[in-house]
């Protein structure tokens, strides 16, 4: 059985219209399906406003999907009873982008890390909890001297480690990582990526790893989804998509990475246009307004995500199945 199965997930927000009684909807997540096994990482890349955080939030029950199903170990998370829901909240944790905003400044590191253990009732004796907190801090590369200090006394990279310790405290199986290294300096970013990889091997953790940085995603992910305006445009093995992107948007993303331009790309015409507002998604293929290959059909008909090889899916009229 898969650890996590997401089927045709849709998240729609109602937003204020211009006139009276006018209703407008923002389709943040449109028909997304994927699966995740134990001990694996699925990467999710896309630019701002593409819906990647909405998707992440729905997995940790911070957002209610409009349609679709999220199954965790075979059970639909949307109709769990209280006890099941509490256990689900334990087994799926989240790490956030901003290590400054995601820790309570008034709690000591020990109190922050111990909070989940207490709330979930995993341990009750204070000395037992304290020992566990120290064990967790050591696991993420901090030491016992950190326990009585406050978040402000730590650097960004160290705070991100505290955030990771806090997530690990309740022994999760899946961690949703929403841009966990984007706010960190390069020299520290590598430390945190390596730490996440080690923890994955040690605890058989699964990650949904959200980022806009394709080089980071390539380093950590087994599978990859490329998202554009709420839809998945390409999905499959990370290595394959990065070395041979099929969807014109994936190609544009990879060619835009600074430092990645080679001699052969010198006459590349470059990325074009801005991401349209998610309130105003173009009809047909959402990417047609920026696509260098767009044809009449792309403006009218929305391409479906279809396999070009059994595990590699692409949503583009112009990409043919590989035999």
């Amino acid at each position: 059985m898969k650890l996590l199965e997401v089927q045709e997930l849709e998240i729609r927000y109602r937003v204020q219209g211009n006139g009276f009684r006018e209703r407008r909807y923002l389709q943040a997540v449109n028909q997304i399906s994927f699966e995740l096994d134990r001990g694996r990482t699925i990467g999710l890349v896309g630019e701002s406003g593409c819906g990647k955080s909405s998707l992440a939030r729905s997995l940790v029950l911070l957002e209610e999907p409009t349609n679709g199903e999220i199954r965790y170990q075979g059970r639909n998370i949307l109709n769990m009873n209280r006890a099941e829901r509490k256990d689900y909240r334990r087994s799926v944790q989240m790490i956030f982008q901003d290590p400054y905003g995601s820790l309570n400044p008034k709690l000591t590191v020990e109190a922050s890390v111990a909070e989940g253990i207490r709330l979930q009732g995993l341990m009750t004796k204070p000395d037992q909890i304290q020992k566990e907190v120290i064990r967790l801090l050591e696991k993420v590369g901090l030491d016992a001297s950190a326990t009585k200090r406050y978040p402000r006394q730590f650097s960004g990279g160290q705070r991100q480690r505290i955030g990771i310790a806090r997530a690990l405290a309740v022994r999760p199986e899946l961690i949703v990582c929403d841009e966990p290294v984007s706010a960190l300096d390069v020299s520290v970013q590598a430390q945190v990526i390596n730490l996440l990889r080690e923890l994955q091997t040690d605890f058989q953790l699964s990650y949904l790893f959200i980022t806009h940085d394709l080089a980071v995603v390539e380093n950590i992910s087994h599978e990859l989804m490329v998202m554009y305006l709420g839809q998945i445009v390409e999905q499959g093995p990370a290595k394959k998509i990065i070395s041979q992107p099929k969807h014109p948007y994936s190609q544009m993303l990879i060619a835009s990475i600074p430092g990645n331009r080679t001699e052969a790309d010198e006459n590349w015409s470059g990325s074009r246009g801005d991401i349209p507002s998610p309130l105003n998604v173009p009809p047909g293929c959402p990417f047609h307004s920026r696509c260098p290959l767009a044809e009449e059909r792309c403006r009218l008909e929305r391409p479906l995500l279809k396999p070009i090889t059994p595990r590699h899916l692409v949503a583009c009229h112009l990409v043919a199945t590989e035999d």
């Binding site: 390069v186 080089a215 290595k239």
Partner: peptide, 10 residues
Amino acid sequence: AAPRIGSGQH
């Protein structure tokens, strides 16, 4: 320290 595109998992 900077992950580079095309260098795979390491």
